[in-house]
Simulated scan of single mutants.
Amino acid sequence: MKYITSTLAGLLASAALVSAAAAADCEVTLRSSDTHPDGYPTVEGVKAMAEEVKTKTEGRICIEVFPSSQLGEEKDTIEQTQFGVIDMVRASFGSFNDIVPVTQLLSLPYLFRSEDHLHNVMDGPIGEEIGKSFEERDLVALAYYDGGARSFYNSQKPIASIEDLKGMKFRVMQNDVFVDMMAALGANATPMPYGEVYSAIQTGVIDGAENNYPSYDSSGHAEVAKYYTLDQHLMVPELVAISKASWDKLTPEDQAILREAARNSATVQRQLWADQEKASEEKVVAAGAEIIKDIDKTPFIEAMVPVYDKYVTTPEAKDLVERIQATE
């Protein structure tokens, strides 16, 4: 065991030396943080961006990716990026809610009809407009990644209509919008830590929860809640941002290279995410999960009127929501 430990330490030290040596060859090294593990679609997306930037700048600019929360959790690394301690960060829009208020609107239930609709919104004028809001908080938005779509799953029965949800108990994140969403659907929200969901479903404390395919798969929840309803009630974008302090040190030409590479990396990340979703779906189905896809979302969407009335209160917010909904 001592040999294994010392060997591992030696390998890590060697890797650090190689990384330091590689960074020394670059005129500019940008440190980028991600909470997800190495190999995860968001991490691989930023790596693709790094490769393109290094190639197009002939090695002058390097992006060093730190996965697995090595530099801290999302909210901490966002703050560090704002102050220029870290150069770049990849984080969910949800983690920006207290910093950039407009991001809260992107967490409204059923705001996006599909992942294609989400991409069309974020890659167009609306996404560009939202991106400018980050500059007021010392961040420059570079690219929008895909965080998947959250759907309901439970241990009791197939849910094919809004009536099927009545009275059921679902775990949700500690978020007022989520709690109000469940009430509007006639179900009961039960906020609890993610790590307690498996046993809570298994023991009947709750009937189910909600998340995307990969999380439904990797958490083992498919073992105790075999009915998965593809209602896609929530799609929250992911953002790759750079510190304005680091951005301002770059030439306009290098800024253009970073922007293009970031946007190209979004295509890579989204494809990797789609592949992961497909693999997870196939895995849970093979294990006995039942996927309910043929549902009419209209009643679900119509039930959200009181939720939107509560959270979309300003003329600016109402205009943005209407423009998002009108995007093809």
Rank of each mutant, 00 (worst) to 15 (best):
S280E: 03
V307W: 05
A279S: 11
V28E: 07
Y144V: 06
T103A: 02
D146I: 03
T57A: 13
P237I: 01
S33N: 14
L142Y: 03
E115S: 15
E253G: 12
T298I: 12
R137F: 03
A256M: 10
I61M: 00
Q271K: 15
S33L: 01
V121I: 10
P214Q: 04
E260D: 11
I291C: 12
Y198I: 09
T267A: 15
V179Q: 05
S92T: 13
I291D: 01
Y216F: 10
F112M: 05
V65C: 09
Q156W: 01
N97P: 02
Y213D: 05
D248L: 07
R171C: 07
E58Y: 05
E44S: 12
V121W: 00
G10C: 09
P109L: 03
K47D: 05
T5G: 10
K249E: 13
V121N: 00
V240T: 14
T7M: 12
S32K: 04
A183H: 07
G94Q: 04
L239H: 05
V236H: 00
Y194Q: 10
P125S: 10
E281F: 07
F96Q: 00
E136D: 10
G10P: 08
E260A: 15
F83W: 06
L320G: 05
V28G: 01
A245I: 06
D254A: 05
F96G: 00
L258N: 14
I78Q: 02
M122H: 01
L106M: 14
Q276N: 12
M49K: 09
D25A: 12
N175I: 04
H221R: 10
T314R: 07
Q104W: 02
D217L: 06
A261D: 04
F300D: 00
L258V: 12
F96P: 01
A286M: 06
G84W: 08
D176L: 09
